[in-house]
Nucleic acid binder design. Structure first.
Lengths: 109, 109
DNA sequence: CGTGTAAGGAATTCTGACACG
DNA sequence: CGTGTAAGGAATTCTGACACG
């Protein structure tokens, strides 16, 4: 449930200039996808955006979809849909665990 | 023998400012350890240093050793010693493989 | 030897806006 | 809608040097 370790893929340490080189996108595009809530860079102490390798991959995926004519809000909806699905899976997993624990304690009565 | 894939740990994408935050070292220190050939950042198109996560870890290790009174040239010597050892291991591995292949072909004669 | 600092220039990044379509 | 661009300011990074010890 927690996510403290933060793998290399998830650590936000890459500046927009490097992201530009890595993805081939313009700064304008990168910032715009953030405006449309498709990516969520962190900010350094004095306000410059910091991206993770995951963000970079996500950006390349977004760029491909846009090339295919998909609009940003559609990409976003699909993103939200997937997140909900993940949350649901998580809930199901927890329910199963709870069920097993219950069964266990009843058994011991 | 090759090393094309370049994992996240090895990709040089982090600017000195972020390395400073991550390690707690000063820019002066970080640049000095490079001068002493302990780390090897790449350079971006217009000359700013780029570090990898591996470099960040190595820097923290270096800082610890310096705190313990180890001098930079000693750290470097130890580094070189380890590299030679790695190269040797690699050679041994190749020799063994060659030996096995030889044995195989002789057997088939 | 290892690190701090002031110096000046060059490159980076940021925001808000106008433009096109 | 998605992206380009000019604008001005603020922060970053670079190098070579002087300093201390």
């Amino acid at each position: 449930m927690g996510n403290e370790p933060t793998s290399y893929r998830e650590r936000k340490v890459i500046s927009i200039g490097v992201v530009k080189e890595l993805t081939g996108l313009s700064e304008r595009q990168i910032r715009y996808y953030e405006e449309r809530k498709l990516i969520f860079p962190e900010r350094s102490a004095r306000g410059s955006r910091k991206y993770s390798f995951d963000d970079v991959e996500r950006l390349m995926d977004i760029a491909n979809q846009i090339e295919d004519g998909v609009q940003t809000f559609e990409i976003r909806q699909e993103m939200i849909r997937k997140e909900k699905n993940e949350a649901k899976k998580e809930t199901v997993r927890e329910d199963m665990l709870r069920g097993q624990l219950n069964a266990y304690f009843h058994m011991r009565k």
